[in-house]
Amino acid sequence: MKHLIVYAHPNSESLNHAILDTTVNTLKKQGHEVTVRDLYELDFQPVLKPADTAAMRNGHTPQDIQTEQDHIAQADVITFIYPIWWTGLPAIFKGYIDRVFSYGFAYSVGEEGIIKLLAGKKGVIINTHGTPNEVYDHIGMTNGLKLTSDTGIFDFVGIESLGHLFFGSIGYLDDASYKGILKQVEDKLDSLFS
């Protein structure tokens, strides 16, 4: 299978980067083809500008958007890896969704309503956050995040969610716990794709 990983974290020493490495290594070990789009490394420009939408309406998708859309079009599975900041996606990742998951590429509208143009693809999301999981579960934030990303992004464009991993209390755990997180990521990917 062809896997696309869209990744966003500014620190190459972060847990998110270790999760990225674990994801890539696990998938490659299983024989999958893996492409990583590191939004910070790419210096991805996240602001959707009027010139972008005007160009796309005229059939001239800007090259940086087209490049990302080509990666998505070729992928069987799309995995998002990013931290939860202020109960949502980092700005660079939100901008990626705004610009790349555009009308006419990811979705359209017809007589029956929304047309999901990325149907047939699978998706996985892996998130970290500083708040304990139990707190997010109790206040409804975990369900809220699933609703806005699994449903609001993936399902809206036809990507079937295969799972959403949340790792809380980041920054407050011991080394064994961080190693346990990486093992959970590996086990989840093995269960889904081996």
Results as ranks from 00 to 15, higher is better:
Lys2Cys: 02
Leu4Gly: 00
Val6Asp: 00
Tyr7Leu: 11
His9Ala: 05
Asn11Leu: 04
Asn11Asp: 15
Ser12Cys: 04
Glu13Met: 13
Ser14Arg: 09
His17Gln: 13
Ala18Cys: 04
Ala18Trp: 10
Ile19Ser: 08
Thr22Cys: 15
Val24Asn: 07
Asn25His: 11
Asn25Thr: 10
Lys28Ala: 07
Lys28Glu: 14
Glu33Thr: 15
Thr35Gln: 05
Asp43Phe: 07
Pro46Ile: 12
Asp52Leu: 04
Ala54Leu: 14
Ala54Pro: 01
Ala54Tyr: 14
Ala55Pro: 14
Met56Lys: 09
Asn58Pro: 02
Gly59His: 08
His60Cys: 10
His60Gly: 12
Thr61His: 09
Pro62Asn: 09
Asp64Ser: 04
Thr67Val: 10
Glu68Tyr: 05
Asp70Thr: 08
His71Asn: 13
Ile72Ser: 00
Ile72Gln: 02
Ala73Val: 05
Val77Tyr: 06
Val77Ser: 07
Ile78Leu: 09
Phe80Asn: 01
Ile81Asn: 09
Tyr82Asn: 15
Ile84Arg: 03
Trp85Cys: 11
Thr87Arg: 06
Gly88His: 00
Gly88Cys: 04
Pro90His: 14
Ala91Cys: 00
Phe93Met: 15
Phe93Gln: 08
Ser102Met: 02
Phe105Gln: 08
Tyr107Thr: 02
Gly110Trp: 03
Glu112Ile: 10
Ile114Ala: 10
Ile115Leu: 13
Ile115Ser: 12
Lys116Asn: 13
Leu117Ser: 05
Leu117Ile: 05
Leu118Gln: 14
Gly120Phe: 03
Lys121Trp: 06
Lys122Val: 04
Val124Ser: 03
Ile125Ser: 13
Ile126His: 05
Asn127Glu: 07
Pro132Cys: 08
Val135Lys: 04
Asp137Phe: 00
His138Ser: 02
Ile139Asn: 09
Met141Thr: 12
Thr142Arg: 07
Gly144His: 05
Lys146Trp: 13
Ser149Pro: 06
Thr151Met: 12
Ile153Arg: 01
Ile153Val: 14
Ile153Ser: 01
Val157Ser: 07
Gly158Val: 09
Ile159Glu: 01
Glu160Trp: 04
Glu160Met: 05
Ser161Phe: 01
Leu162Phe: 07
His164Tyr: 12
Phe166Gly: 00
Gly168Asp: 08
Gly168Tyr: 00
Gly168Gln: 09
Ile170Lys: 02
Gly171Pro: 10
Tyr172Ala: 14
Leu173Thr: 02
Asp175Arg: 10
Asp175Cys: 00
Gly180Asn: 10
Gly180Ile: 15
Leu182Cys: 08
Gln184Tyr: 06
Glu186Met: 02
Ser191Val: 00
Ser191Cys: 03
